[in-house]
Nucleic acid binder design. Structure first.
Lengths: 173, 173
DNA sequence: AAAGGCGATGTCAGTTACTGACATCAACCG
DNA sequence: CGGTTGATGTCAGTAACTGACATCGCCTTT
């Protein structure tokens, strides 16, 4: 991340990363599938926490509420102390299409895992997929706001507000 | 697309594509930014139609309804005769992560353009972004169903049904 | 018709991400 | 002490992409 921030993602070669890490280029590729993946090692932690929370939600919880509980758990359990880090990381990601693509597929993976989990709780299609997609959409919009300027609330609060807004929007207001 | 279907995306080299097209590799890259972009030339057509429809929606239309009108226009105006083509194309895309990523960023671009358009119509944030994300989520889920097996309705009908389902889900049912 | 400009294409050389095959080496295990 | 195993290094190769320059056909202008 240091190097990506210093000279930009495209201008950083894997050879340079490996050198600063005291490793070989070949070893780098044994740890990371590609140059982009370096910035996304934490995505499975997010996915596990969100999915686990949804899975353990009380029976009878509405799908969208279960998803909301999962997102809230992630906001308070992972991101609460990481705003500065998230901002630095996000500045790098948004500057390069390749990284934006990778971020999107991580979110899509989260959405897919959420839909699987909801189906495991007896939610049928397409409700499961739509609840999962709606939840990740809320997370995406809220996260962008949270790392942006002029937002003082913590992530959990922004998510809560965005979910309420989605409810209004979906109701046709 | 022929070559990607025959031997797979990764196993197809740009040299082979250029040869079959009777061109040089260098010329290929003058027409397409990269190997993946070949399959996404139509995405700006989709975006233009959806955005244009939203822009021209009657004043006072609720954001989600304007977006729904845009998606409906795309379904009837672009995809109605392209189901077979869409299926062949989608089979290639879903088989390769690189292509899935590219597809996601095209959808994200649509969502972003939609949000801009809604803001142009006076919708404030985060309602504009959420309506746009919700709309593209509906499109994504509906499109997947439409190209999948056992779906006989046309795309417009699937979108309509998915949107209704999203409304239920968002309402907490 | 000649001249000149311009857009599309070809040619060529170079960089760099990524991969497979094999060697090495250190820790651990029986 | 010999052997196994997992992580790393070495090396050579492929293919995506890029920049610089040449060429060529078409169109305009004189």
């Amino acid at each position: 991340m240091e190097l990506y921030a210093e000279r930009g993602f495209e201008q950083t070669t894997v050879a340079e990363i490996a050198k600063r890490a005291g490793l070989t280029e070949r070893t780098f590729f044994r740890h990371y599938a590609d140059k982009r993946e370096v910035l996304f090692g934490g995505s499975h932690v997010l996915e596990d926490l969100v999915v686990g929370t949804v899975r353990d939600a009380p029976e009878g919880t509405a799908p969208i509420d279960a998803v909301a509980a999962g997102l809230d758990a992630a906001a308070t359990g992972i991101f609460s102390d990481l705003r500065d880090f998230a901002r630095r990381r996000q500045a790098i990601i948004t500057a390069h299409q390749d990284l934006r693509e990778r971020e999107l597929i991580k979110l899509a993976s989260l959405s897919s895992a959420l839909a699987d989990t909801l189906r495991g709780r007896g939610v049928s299609e397409p409700a499961a997929s739509l609840a999962a997609e709606a939840g990740t959409a809320v997370f995406k919009v809220a996260f962008e706001r949270w790392v942006g300027d002029g937002e003082t609330r913590d992530l959990a609060a922004v998510i809560k507000g965005s979910l309420a807004e989605l409810r209004s929007v979906a109701a046709g207001e």
